[in-house]
Design a protein around this nucleic acid. Structure first.
Lengths: 212, 212
DNA sequence: CTCAAATCAACCGATTCGGTTTATAAAAAT
DNA sequence: ATTTTTATAAACCGAATCGGTTGATTTGAG
């Protein structure tokens, strides 16, 4: 794989994006090396020249995405933030900045989570276990729920936010060309709207009440 | 296709579900007739025996789903309902009852909307145009937005609900075995929670304020 | 028992698969 | 200037799979 790393970064990224998107949409088995080569604008032979086998490419991507997310979390995640919505914003920011580099990273990560092909399933499971407690760090624990209005069903609210973020991230994945800043601002406004209507009045941003 | 219709309904449904799920997850080109046959527990030859060609099967499914949704809408849609949340509940009910019959129908409909294969793309586009004004009937028009609190950004709220329902429907599609009633009740509770916090106080269900 | 319909395993030629070899042309090294 | 190396893609490999067919077997009704 030294051959691949010797490429200029921009070409590496082109190939990585092509592969992430192909594997992400069609899974391991149904993605052919020709698909990836075509999407990257190179010949199939080059893919083998760079990565040796389809499987090697696949797991290179898996590990790459793993470390990208890990770095992003280490850099942006702040466990001292206990506000529910701020924590969600953090997670969203983490995902957005990962997608700025590799737009299909979410699609790909979701796909490996559901991957069922025998040739890669077991190795994937092994990697998942390794990252399990890592994920728990950014989950909804140690969080301050006391700011919510008394009558809110918190379990239901969390479930709703899971649906919401999933739908939001889905829309990010679908679009070919996205202005991430605009999308993120919209999501941010959405979280603020929820906060302003589900938090006790003493916790909502005072400037909100005088909004248009 | 008389051969297919001569089958007992339960076997027809098994095959339809297998095909909807296969096409829905892998698209037209990447879905092989063997995939569908295996998922349906029959031999590949039978699929050809019943449908003649892969393409014929595909468009049988497209039209079937179209008429299922159309029937469901004609039966359940009530344009006199102007309450925003009640209208959403209606749409959700329509989709749920379609999924009760064919669990992968949402997945499939979504997939044909993004289908890009040359062999089927054009015929699909032609069908989409036909159903365009039909879809507008259940869209968010002629609806009563006056019950919302004055300070709510309605455009943003609608966008949020789009994300929410997308995420919700996604979860429905993922699961293998689902209790639709439970899922729907949860979504319904979620909508009520939103209503109670985004509608002016005089419009929220009085019983809500004394909830646990 | 008969006969036709239902069903599937085996098969067809064509295509595509993962992967290799070869041809070519530019770049680097001599 | 000439050799050598490197980057690249086209052409190719055997194996697998594709959409689709066929022949043989099973099944079920008369």
């Amino acid at each position: 794989m030294e051959k691949f790393f010797a490429l200029p970064q921009i070409k590496q990224d082109t190939i990585i994006n092509a592969a992430l998107s192909s594997f992400g949409t069609n899974g391991y088995k149904k993605t052919s090396v020709s698909d990836i080569a075509a999407a990257a604008g190179i010949s199939k032979a080059m893919v083998f020249h760079y990565f040796g086998t389809k499987k090697a490419l696949y797991f290179y991507l898996v590990n790459l995405c793993g470390s990208i997310i890990m770095n992003e979390v280490n850099e942006k995640f702040d466990s001292t933030v206990t506000d529910f919505f701020d924590r969600i914003k953090q997670s969203s920011e983490i995902e957005i900045s990962a997608m700025k580099k590799y737009p299909s990273i979410s699609l790909f990560l979701k796909s490996i989570y559901f991957e069922k092909d025998e040739e890669v399933k077991d190795d994937l499971r092994a990697l998942f276990e390794k990252g399990e407690d890592f994920r728990n760090k950014i989950a909804f624990q140690g969080m301050d729920y006391s700011k919510f209005k008394e009558d809110i069903d918190l379990k239901l609210f969390v479930k709703m936010l899971l649906w919401l973020t999933d739908g939001y991230m889905n829309q990010l994945s679908d679009k070919a060309e996205i202005d991430y800043e605009i999308m993120f601002k919209e999501f941010d406004k959405c979280l603020n709207m929820l906060k302003n209507n589900f938090y006790k009045e003493e916790y909502v941003n005072p400037s909100y009440k005088s909004r248009s």
